[in-house]
Amino acid sequence: MSLVGLPLILLTWALAIGAVAATVRGWRLAGRWRMPVRIVGLVVVEALVVAGAGLIVNRQDSFYPSWQALGGAASVVTVPSTSAGRLDGTLDSHAAVTWSPPEAAAWHLAAAPQLIAPSDYAATPARTFPVILVLTTTTEAAEIRPAAGALTVALAPTADTTVAALADLSGRLARDARVTDRLVILADGPWASLAAGWPGRPPVIAGHTAADFERATRDLPAPLAAPEELPS
């Protein structure tokens, strides 16, 4: 039975439910067995609940992908491998790259979005990067600055641009570039309300001066490290 498989998780939780039922049933036993039954029942229930929760977390993050890894007989990958983005071949410098996904027409932007990758984007293909999203009246190169450790995305909204229209932007970006779902928004005054309604309520900074970019970079998490192997 796989350590990250659903059958093991279901079995563990079924045993936990059974242990709860057995403990409740034996709770009112008379005589000298009352306290031992209660103590053993509570310990078993707690152990199974903790094990069940741990198995769910392990299934999601693959800390121990196999029984061999759990026993220390194999190396454990701490970060899953990263798939290449479709624009990885062009996101290799500080130069702005025009981003034209098919869905962009529904975003009602004044110009095509622009992407600027950090300087180490091409050199670290196993990393994913957080995002600095710039909402501005223009996506001219002078208005966009590269950010250390983050992918910069510049959008020029219009009066017809809504949060609902941009709901699929993060998913489309993750398809084309190696990014995480963590972001900070830099917004011109006219687009503050658009930024405030962004899903997940990310941090919003008014303006996009050099100081604003530095502040956004400080607020972002560091890019994920390349996969590392723990000693067996």
Rank of each mutant, 00 (worst) to 15 (best):
P36V: 11
L55Y: 10
L135V: 00
T12F: 00
F129D: 00
W67C: 02
A69Y: 10
A126I: 02
L6H: 09
I17S: 06
A112M: 15
F63E: 03
G71Q: 15
A51V: 13
F63A: 14
R38Q: 05
W33V: 13
P7Q: 09
V44N: 03
F129H: 00
L29D: 09
A74F: 06
A104Q: 08
A111M: 02
T128N: 15
A141R: 12
R86I: 09
T124V: 09
P125K: 08
T82F: 03
A16Q: 09
L29H: 10
A123N: 15
A142E: 15
S66N: 09
L8W: 01
S2N: 11
A122S: 08
F63S: 07
V134C: 04
A126Y: 09
V77W: 02
L15D: 02
W99E: 01
A111H: 07
V43W: 08
V79D: 04
T98D: 00
T12I: 05
A112V: 12
T136R: 14
A14W: 04
W107F: 05
H94S: 13
A105N: 11
T139Q: 01
Y64P: 03
V131K: 00
A126H: 10
E103L: 09
V20S: 03
A148L: 11
S100P: 05
V97H: 09
I56T: 14
V57W: 11
A95P: 05
A111G: 01
